[in-house]
Write a protein that binds this DNA or RNA. Structure first.
Lengths: 248, 248
DNA sequence: TATCATTGTATCATATTGATACAATGATAA
DNA sequence: TTATCATTGTATCAATATGATACAATGATA
């Protein structure tokens, strides 16, 4: 099947099953060791890259739809996934889609509901589906050109994620079962894009009281072996839901 | 024109001009002196109250549409208005609308994009339009039954607003041109729903350095007259955009 | 056994917050 | 005129949090 006919076939079926004028875009952040990446796809017939996305099924919960899109592209389940903003500027969906037939639902105006997720990209094998020709992790310091306003969506997601880092402990699913404080610090530094003071980082994290301290450390390297920790699920979840610390 | 025919007429015209499956709901908080209220409307043929809302014009920017809805109901311009979440649960739009003809666009599934605004309700005269029979300020401590999931939308807006209070100075448009620290504190206490320490409040607010201090105080009452302040526009706006203080 | 990189942890200065106290002010009434 | 009183402005101290720095502990390597 050639490129256009895939679109056409999907377009015909689209109105039967989906809500028009609404799309979901997922900014999937991939972390590992000391690198932060984003999952991008290249659609058939497109030069520029795009955020993985999809449309909302008529009989589908919004959050469920986002979860499904993420799972289909990554296979990842039970990851942190959160809605952060809906984009509805005029004209945002028209650029870059001019090559498609005018009456395609793709060409019509639509809003995009933005979600962001956080995964370990070493555990993920990106999936190329039938309307895309590529699905890859891209380093956030070397991003290719992106279609429509996807670059802006990505940047807002990054800002929101960095902000939320201040209120919710993260790291679960992004680190091995057992990890060290230097490893956790690297994670924070990578996501925040800046270095942090070592001693103060440990003090602050340990004050959260969400870790289980293990007896043996991680061996290897000509230096003192760091202590291994793992997340205390109960305390971790409690801290997550408590979340936002109040200032007043 | 009877109730149903108004709906029918609007329904016919609807698809010509608007995006289906998408609505905008505005949680308009009204503050004055020491009371916090919410603007609610009662639609024709409905017993329960609803958040003021509307639909997105095909050729209309999302934020512009929210602004228009707010202005039509309140006449208020240049107020704080911010998108906070999109609601897309399955079934949320079906309850409470069963009395309408099944093929109405009202009856179809739709998402709601939630905005919240903050105004002085003494300056606002709520507007009853042709599809509603009432539009009133309701005290947040004595809310009537609301349709669909509007109660939940309101509660999430309240939580978001209270949270944002910690990062952005507010009060502009909610207080007279010149105001005192006790008045500003009352505003915070009313919105947060709790009392704050007097001395510490002053210290913290003044540390923001966004006020102009005036020479004369406000007279009246058998006690020391409080100092009058007004917002320093430049510094205030700068603080607003700087906004979110980073913790790391 | 010495060396070295890295880690754990202590410490000090500074900043922020919570709690409390007290003087200043201005209307009211004796 | 003066005493009273409610409220406001502001200082202060303790508790807590943060930033910066130092130093001892550890474990591989030479």
């Amino acid at each position: 099947m050639d490129e256009m006919s895939v679109f056409e076939q999907r377009s015909k079926a689209f109105y039967q099953t989906h809500l028009p004028h609404i799309s979901i875009d997922c900014v999937v952040f991939g972390f590992h060791i000391n690198t932060l990446k984003v999952l991008l796809v290249k659609m058939k017939g497109q030069e520029k890259w795009a955020l993985p996305g999809g449309f909302l099924n008529k009989e589908q919960d919004l959050n469920e739809a986002a979860k499904t899109i993420l799972e289909e592209r990554t296979g990842a389940e039970k990851v942190f996934l959160e809605q952060f903003k809906t984009f509805g500027e005029l004209g945002r969906s028209e650029s870059d889609l001019g090559y498609m037939p005018e009456d395609f639902w793709f060409r019509q105006r639509f809003l995009s509901i933005g979600y962001y997720a956080l995964v370990d990209y070493e555990k993920i094998m990106p999936v190329v589906d039938e309307i895309s020709i590529a699905c890859e992790w891209k380093d956030i310091n070397d991003l290719p050109e992106m279609m429509m306003d996807h670059r802006k969506i990505y940047e807002e997601a990054l800002a929101v994620m960095r902000f939320q880092l201040n209120f919710k402990p993260i790291g679960y699913n992004l680190l091995p079962e057992e990890f060290t404080m230097p490893e956790l610090q690297k994670l924070y530094e990578t996501i925040l894009g800046k270095t942090l003071s070592r001693g103060n980082f440990q003090r602050k994290m340990l004050a959260y009281d969400i870790f289980i301290k293990h007896d043996k450390g991680r061996r290897g390297g000509a230096h003192r072996s760091p202590i291994l920790y793992s997340f205390d699920q109960d305390k971790y979840n409690h801290a997550l839901s408590r979340g936002l610390k109040e200032a007043w």
